[in-house]
């Protein structure tokens, strides 16, 4: 086999040198680490052991996974989370964006307020909402108390997962709004003017002219939200730690528990690999669509 002769000019050498730190770090911490993780998932590393053993142990961890009810629950919960959280956030975000597009006075103030939750750490969100959900003197029950309606919120295994979605929508709506707002702002004014001259206005203008042009922004938000819903960890870990029981278990959380609480590293790595595959199923087509054909 012949290798093409690579000739380094002064410039291409400089280019390589400048790229090197990023390539080394990303190559090592992303690609090498992912491969390593896969190796661990098929290794003989014993459960409950801190002694590393990389010898090949087959795919039994993966076999175990699909017989593990907690794993299946986590997977199911992840999917439910996506099914509620993503459309919910998109709707609220779209609504906020359309509201803010009405030539509002102090638009900046409202935008700053709506986006504020997104700049908070998930740890903070979890803390604030644990307080909101608090049974005795939580804000939610306080307000619902006026109507003689109270709930046991995240303590109730039947509704805990849905309760978790509320703060997430609270946190992500502002961000979604921002993405959609950027999409609205990028529609040429002449477009909207032309539609207005043609007699379109109000609701009709939005439905027929503006929203159809937001496809890209909404798709972007959609992808980002799905990926987040798959990756979410910090927030649920602190709010419910997966409980009650396994009611709010999701894959990242179960992976963390398996690896770092139960010290079943090979098993945890297998969960992580499945999780990675799920995320890549979304990311790869998205990146392909966004950057395809731009290669020079």
């Amino acid at each position: 086999m012949k290798f093409p002769r690579i000739k380094f000019t002064k410039d291409s050498l400089a280019t390589l040198l400048l790229l090197l730190p990023a390539l080394v770090l990303v190559g090592f911490f992303v690609y090498f680490a992912i491969s390593w993780n896969v190796v661990v998932s098929v290794s003989n590393w014993k459960d409950y052991s801190l002694v590393v053993d990389y010898s090949f142990g087959g795919f039994r961890q993966y076999e175990k996974l699909f017989a593990d009810p907690i794993f299946l629950t986590s997977l199911k919960n992840n999917l439910i989370l996506i099914a509620i959280f993503v459309p919910g956030t998109l709707l609220v975000g779209l609504f906020l964006a359309l509201l803010l597009d009405q030539k509002i006075r102090k638009e900046g103030v409202f935008r700053t307020i709506y986006l504020l939750p997104f700049t908070l750490s998930f740890v903070v969100t979890a803390f604030l909402w644990r307080w909101m959900f608090n049974l005795d003197n939580g804000v939610l029950n306080y307000f619902l108390g006026f109507f003689n309606l109270t709930s046991d919120w995240i303590i109730n295994p039947d509704i805990a997962l849905y309760c978790v979605v509320i703060p997430l929508i609270w946190q992500f709506s502002g961000y979604t709004m921002l993405i959609i707002l950027a999409g609205i702002k990028s529609i040429p004014v002449s477009h909207i003017m032309a539609a207005e001259v043609d007699g379109a206005s109000g609701f009709y203008l939005y439905r027929r002219v503006i929203i159809p042009q937001l496809k890209t922004s909404i798709a972007t938000a959609f992808v980002i939200l799905i990926i987040f819903a798959l990756k979410a960890f910090d927030f649920i870990w602190i709010l419910t730690t997966g409980g009650p029981g396994t009611a709010t278990y999701i894959l990242p959380l179960y992976m963390f528990r398996s690896s770092f609480m139960d010290t079943k590293f090979a098993y945890g790595s297998a969960i992580a690999t499945i999780l990675l595959l799920l995320v890549m199923m979304i990311v790869v087509p998205y990146l392909y669509k966004t950057y395809r054909g731009k290669e020079k």
């Binding site: 993780n37 945890g268 992580a272 990146l287 950057y291």
Partner: peptide, 22 residues
């Protein structure tokens, strides 16, 4: 462009997939 895409994949990966090696 390929290098760029390979780099930004790092934005999207679930960190659980690198946690044990990390």
């Amino acid at each position: 462009n390929t290098i760029f895409v390979l780099i930004i994949v790092g934005i999207f990966i679930p960190y659980q997939a690198v946690l044990v090696p990390l």
